[in-house]
Amino acid sequence: MGLEQFKNRNVGTQNYTMVDAGHSPQGAMCQFKQVVKRTFKGELFVGLWVTMRSMIKALFANDMHTVKYPLEKLPISPRYRAIHDMLRLLESGHYRCIGCGLCEKICISNCIAMDTRYDENQRKEVSEYTINFGRCIFCGYCAEVCPELAIVHGPRYENASQQRAGFSLFEDMLTPIDKLNLQQEYDGFGAVSPNADENIKQTPLAY
């Protein structure tokens, strides 16, 4: 094996598709011709017209692209991954989290921590839960892995802060019980796929 391929630093040039950019003028005469051609063709005025047209549109056709951010906000995608929310069960109002610890396990920035215990009702209770938002990279794995759709990404993306780390507790992220009726089912990362029903095999239950 020769070294040619290593010496060619223009990696990938062989596969480039060349666009038709015309030819560079060869010789003084050609260059002169090009200058004359370009000068009188009025290409420069096309540019002027384009900007002028934009200005006219912006001023008179209400085609202004600026969003005055703190006053106006663009709608965000349901798949947007902002500060987490902890959802509740709609019927009982109990929080959905079962304390399985999968979010804690899958978290690649290791920012989720939880403590669980055996409660009086013989259930697993999440006694403490925190997310370190100073470390969280909002990758969405926790929402994706959650088997109960309990931890999801909410729409709250304005989280600039003056401190390096901000810890959120379970209660901070949990849907307030009085706002349960406003709780939105999450559409984004980790939600049930639209064709989920087709992928489920039925278990015979005749009794």
Partner: peptide, 13 residues
């Protein structure tokens, strides 16, 4: 302002 309008922005507001 002019540059902003030509780029469909609002400029200083």
């Amino acid at each position: 302002k002019v540059l902003a309008f030509m780029q469909r922005r609002l400029g200083p507001m």
